[in-house]
Amino acid sequence: MSEENHYIPHVAEITSITQETTGERAVKTFKVDFKDANVQLKFKPGQTCMVSVFGKGESMFAISQSPTRGSLEFSVQRVGRVTEMLHELEVGDEVGIRGPYGNGFPVEQWKGKNIYFIAGGIGMAPVRAVMNYIVDNKEDYGELYLIYGARTSRDLSFKAEIDALEQGGAIDVRRTIDVEEPGWVPLDNKNPEQSKFDPSSRKFTGFVATTVSAMKCTPENALAVICGPPIMIKTCIASLAKLGWKDEQIYTTLENKMKCGIGKCGRCNIGGVYVCVDGPVFTYAQVKKMLNDQ
């Protein structure tokens, strides 16, 4: 067929599974390979795919690895019907993939900038893709920071990979958790700015937004990428605003229920903006202009 039928997934085999976190809302990273060697997915960091479990349905996921790493990966949190089925699959099992969808991060425009990656929970999936992309093109960019939060230390994904980046000096990493654990420096969520911040500490207890404030992320020649639960995004933006950041410097990703991914099913719109094709990446300036339809 000359024209692509966008509803037909390509069959892909799971070639490796990494158990990132455990528990009820566990996260697993799946690496997949297309069965048909002619199928190639050209994608940008921040783009998404519909992943099928045949007979069960499909769901939208961020591609969680950078295109520079040569593999197609998804990091999936177990939350419902399709994601539960995905978590039961084993290496060698087959899934369906269609995409890539969405705009992706405008990495070309970011050249020369310092970048703060700010992620919470499964929001680390798209951040990992763009962060690894930037790290792999480090000479084009300025200083890099990662602030990554989860509920507990056991809920942090991509541990070994992030540790390696940090140790190699590629990026300045700060981890935060909600509940105190030994060895994690407590920050004051009520008075973030007054929190004692020791730049040599890497592990904090406190909200991600608190760490952002305590760390005093500087807006000069910088931009921030924030992905995570809505409340985290909101509080982090407030923290950055207090530090003098402009709306245009802040990038985030939006999520809405999606079925088609190609702007037809009428489900993912916020006002006239279709998150599946116009997003999921938006600057906060763009988000602010959207209608109150969320």
């Binding site: 509803y7 045949f54 349905g57 079925k259 037809k264 099913c265 009428g266």
Partner: peptide
């Protein structure tokens, strides 16, 4: 009006059906 839903149904098929906002 053209909103639709997509679901997998018994009999190994994926089906698009009209839906409503």
């Amino acid at each position: 009006c053209h909103c639709f839903d997509i679901n997998d149904e018994p009999g190994r098929k994926r089906v698009r059906t009209w839906d409503s906002c």
